[in-house]
Every structure is written in structure tokens, then in C-alpha cells.
Amino acid sequence: MIDPVMALLTAGAVCLGAFLMFWPEKGLIARLRWSKDTGKRVLMEDALKHIYNCEEENVTCTFHSLAGALLKEPNQITPIITRLESLGLLTISGQGFQLTSEGKNYALRILRVHRLWERYLAEETGVPETAWHEQAEIKEHIFTEEDANRISRQLGYPRYDPHGDPIPTASGDLPPHRGRLLNNFSEGDIVQVIHIEDEPSDVYAEIIERGIYLGIQIEISKKLKNSIHILVAGKVQTLPVLLSGNITVQPAPEEQKIEEPLQSLSSLKTGEEAEVAGISRACRGAQRRRLMDLGVVPGTVVSMVMTSAGGDPKAYNIRGAMIALREDQAGFIHIQPLKKVN
């Protein structure tokens, strides 16, 4: 018989070894897999993306801007550019570069994967909003074209990513630009958010934090030099220009009126009734569809029936059926007091 203390110690050592081997991203295996070649390709693809974005925004790309975007020294950029040129993906002229049509297609393919993946994360998973971009930055270098097509099919050939950016089609089609930056509208305008820039990520996180989502309506109440006062979901907020410069909007459609301050379903107490006013825009994809299938549409009368033994999911009577919803889900459902009949 092996001494139990010895056995325990040996097993502990084996566990530690296995952990160091398989630790995701930092373990030995993960490091071995991320070889130098992959790193080079990722840099090249990121360079293409940066140049594509420059061209879209009509600014010239330089070695310096590229070095800044890739977090490299300018002299480290040269080999990347030469390689891209020899592959026929771009041409160099003076200070700037231009993508060839092949280079543009390549960049669009990467954008397509990136935006599709963000959409996938938003619709099909519970990955937090602030982590979408970061994960898509990795996936865009891994996915093949077939992977992208498969995801696209699975999602029902989506047109826009969750930030409102159009997703290039498989053949590289994109619609013309829509909307203007929030800063360009004037006091009193009522607008609808159609795009929120997801870079830099801390600015994006701040915008999300303030409850501004795609599709939400904003009334511009005051414009100052460094900030804008806006009315969102019944609350007045002050947006620094740094934030509002990352929000693209278009004039609100006339049929919709500005949203009132609303309560959410999760605030309902046992036995209380209310009418559904709508589902928050932050609730997307499968989750949103599921709620609507269950009968959560504007006008539905809901009542809170009971709380579970664990405290969290609560059961609501929705159109004659008892439906259990988690607190954060119920938080997405806006309600208003019942309209008095008669």
C-alpha cells in the first residue's frame, strides 16, 4: 500500500503541472499554439483594416498612424507594408498607401467576420456588451470564409452589427453611409441612435453605462462648447463631446413619440398588475424574440404572481399563462400603469 500522504503530495504535484500546461492563454500549450507566423498574419490583417478605415473616412494613412494603430515602432511597420505590397494588396504613393481592389476585398472579409461575430455574441450568447469587440478582434483572424458564411446563415443573414455598423455581404456589398454624428444636430432636434462606435472601449463602455442603445430616441435640449445636454428615456444627461462624437443618429421617424420615463417589470410586487410599454433595445436576438413569442408586446397586461424559493426568477401571468422570468430579463421589459377602462 502506498502511503496516503505521499500519494496526496504526488497528486498535488501532477495537478499543478497540468494546470501550468493547460492554463488558457497563459499555459504552455496556449503559448505554443500562438506561434510567430500567426502573429505576423494578425499584424498584416490589422494593418489592412486600419488602411481601409482611413480610406472610408477620407484621411491619409501614414507610417505613423499605422504604427500607432498597431502599437509598434514605425520602423517595425516597414516590413509589414513591403510584404503587403508584394502580395499585391496595396500600393505605396508618397506618404500614404492605397488598397488595391484585392486589398479592399481582404479588408472587407475581415470586417465581415468581425461584425458577424459581434452580432453572434450579442444575439446568441450572454457575453457582456463591453467584451464583444475584444473577442471579435481575435475571431476575425481565425475564421475562414466558410465559418463566416455558416454564422451568417445561422443568424438569418443579418444586415447590421450590434453597434449599427453594416455587415459586408459575402460578395462585399455595403450600403451607403447613414445618419450624422450627434454633435451635428441642433437644440430641440429629436433623433434616433443608429450607430455607436465601439472603439475606444472605455468610451463605448461609458456610453452603454448611460443607458444609450441602438434605436433609442434622444432629444437634444442644450448644446454647449464641450458638452451636450440630452433627454434620454425621460432623464436629462450631460454628454461630453468625447462621448457624443462617437454616436451616430438620424432624425426620429414621425410615427414614434419620445419615450417617457418608464418602470420595469422587475419592480412589480406580488399581485400587482401593469401594462407592457415595450422591450428595451438592449434586449436582442433570441432573447427578445422569445419574450415576444411569450406574448410580451406593447399593450399586454401582466401581473406578478409569485417569487421562487431561490428568490430570483419570478412568475408572471402573461396572457393567461404563468411564465417565470429572471430579474435581469424582467428588467428589460418596460411597463406603465394600467389604463383605466370605462
Binding site: Q154, G156, A286, R289, R290, M292, D293, L294
Partner: peptide, 8 residues
């Protein structure tokens, strides 16, 4: 099913 429009 509750619906035929979702993707499950």
C-alpha cells in the same frame, strides 16, 4: 412551439 418565427 409558441411561434414559428424564431430560430430554435
Amino acid at each position: 412551439t409558441y411561434s414559428l418565427l424564431s430560430t430554435s
